[in-house]
Design a binder for these strands. Structure first.
Lengths: 353, 353
DNA sequence: GCGGGCAGCCAAAACGATTCGAGCTTGAGT
DNA sequence: ACTCAAGCTCGAATCGTTTTGGCTGCCCGC
């Protein structure tokens, strides 16, 4: 059985797609090892040779193929972030922060939008696994059972931002704010203005942050014995959800004098509802929101809101991720960043306290 | 030029990172060719074997390595889009449209933000080349000389969105709107309300769309002999730029009775300036903007704006790109989508016409 | 009994990079 | 004169896929 050298290639129609390292090597009459060493500075290469190679690279417009590189190196220099809603400026800002930070360390980031659905998030995570990203930061979808993520991601490092993981990876890294505390402070601010009938529009209780904010709100009101169940609403996190809950609250027999909204989109919905019902804000009804956004000062009234350091959250998540990837795990596994109450015009003392 | 010393470390620590097709083959006692054929359905594989393979895939949590795949296939199923400002909801919406459309065709998209600077865009495009993306849609940075893109992208297909290419690729695909026409219509609307002293705040003339909108505005005013150079302003495209120009316009001796802003961020800036100067809009000054956004109805007054079909622009760009990549070039090379004047509350007849 | 088609499987050659080990000159140290 | 290291270069293995051509039975029609 002699293995005969068969000329098996029938097609010779090979259009030259991109220049390869081999083309560069051929152009300067060197081996590809030498070219590689020259380009990466990883071994001795004479100055003359280096110059010739650099010229050839320019002339051939050679760009290394990162697929081949990643395959060999087992590193793609790619990260990813998945958020529940990209059109929400809060998450957009987190993404931006992460991109800015990681770009400086020469990482590319893929961004995914789960639309609050684990099914969509899972699809995205599977794609990330196939692409062998070096790490991912998750703001898990709020519809529960996001703890299967460990399965689909395998050994890829994960950092959580904003929302807590739920007993997911054993030692999960996380960065975010103290939501209970921030909500409590906000509620106490309303109390200090004289409000007693304070409502909250919160998200679904499967969303960790929503649950914590509700908790903080309750703690503040319980302390003065002013908690009433009919003022607690949870619903969808979007604008329509906020509007619907606000209308229900304001049209009931004994409406609240202040509404605390647990995220930014719902706050906008509530504002829309208030205007639609012809109520004067803040004279007749005070509105306090969560998650600030850039153009909140353009609205009338200018909204009083709890500001989260979105950009810093994204940057920190990126930093924590890169640190674990590159095995400088010097930093703590969890980081809590400060919030800030941006007092503007949408809250005032109640008409009849 | 001293070459650096090299430490040739001999690490033999090979942790089993991810399951490979070889692992699957070994598990079922088949060859990798058979596994590949089974998974891709590209050749005969017995039902029994197929079942065994599928079981092994599940058990090993095998996910094909897209790097190796892309290397072999010379296709990455990755697209990219680069826009001048991601925090501008107009571009964000284009990106979203493209993502939605291309996701259905199983493409991933990388998104880049050039911040209106060619230097940044170039960096991003070079990265795309190294990653061998299958195609890219560009909204070129507005600071000129973006025509070097062909060089850095090599043979990678390009589709332009919103802004025109400037004699870039020979047969450039493009999708956008008729900016001159839209601006002319908008200006004529202001004229029909009785305005004669109409100002425009436009972007830098290196930005093609800005130039076209200015052109349309001029055409409308020239037709009634009401064009005055002191009412024409170009500046930065951001909010601060819009505010600055608006203040200059409104504080001059014979201020305009209406301002036409050539993009959305400048419109917001102008609105801010108007409020800051204590002018009543629309009673004292009418404001008409370009590029609608989702929450424009939350502002008071609700802004009258020219709406571009941003989402459709993104989807169409995605479609055109995929069509060229997959060589179904059945569609025209350039597509013009319709605009719409969203008449709301920020324009009214002038006090003294 | 023989040619031929088909179902099922496999070995090996790409794809384009990095890296290990080794070979070959020089020049210096002893 | 001999050894040794440094400087420079190269061949070959490797990363994890797809794909091509070929091999083996087996059944079918004659």
């Amino acid at each position: 059985m002699s293995p005969k050298p068969v000329s098996r290639s029938t097609r010779r129609t090979r259009r030259p797609q991109h220049a390869t390292i081999r083309d560069v090597a051929r152009a300067v009459g060197a081996s590809i090892s030498t070219v590689s060493a020259a380009l990466n500075g990883t071994d001795y290469v004479s100055a003359a040779m280096r110059a010739k190679i650099e010229a050839a690279v320019q002339q051939l417009q050679y760009r290394p193929n990162d697929l081949a590189r990643g395959l060999r190196l087992r590193r793609t220099h790619t990260l990813a972030i998945v958020v529940p809603d990209l059109s929400n400026s809060f998450y957009a800002e987190i993404v931006r922060g992460m991109k800015d930070y990681t770009a400086a360390a020469n990482y590319t980031v893929l961004v995914g939008d789960s639309r609050e659905r684990w099914a969509e998030e899972k699809l995205f995570l599977e794609m990330l696994h196939r692409r062998r990203v070096d790490g991912v930061v998750r703001v898990p979808a709020g519809d529960g059972n996001a703890s299967q993520a460990a399965q689909v991601l395998g050994t890829i490092p994960v950092v959580y931002a904003d929302r807590y993981p739920e007993a997911d990876h054993p030692v999960a890294a996380w960065v975010g704010v103290d939501n209970a505390r921030a909500a409590m402070d906000a509620t106490q601010y309303l109390i200090s203005l004289g409000h007693r009938r304070i409502a909250i529009i919160s998200g679904p209780t499967t969303t960790r942050t929503a649950a914590e904010r509700l908790e903080g709100y309750q703690r503040a009101l319980r302390a003065i014995g002013a908690m009433h169940k009919e003022y607690i609403r949870n619903g969808e996190l979007d604008m329509a959800g906020g509007a619907r809950q606000a209308i229900e609250l304001l049209t009931q027999a004994k409406p609240p004098t202040a509404i605390f909204c647990a995220n930014n989109t719902m706050t906008l919905g509530a504002l829309e509802a208030i205007q639609q019902l012809g109520r004067a804000c803040p004279r007749e009804i005070s509105l306090l929101g969560f998650d600030d956004f850039a153009w909140s000062t353009l609205l009338r009234p200018r909204l009083t809101m709890v500001r989260q350091p979105a950009r810093e959250i994204g940057m920190t998540a990126g930093r924590m991720l890169i640190d674990t990837i590159e095995e400088r795990t010097r930093n703590r596994a969890t980081q809590t960043l400060p919030t800030q109450l941006m007092v503007r015009d949408s809250c005032a003392p109640p008409l009849r306290p």
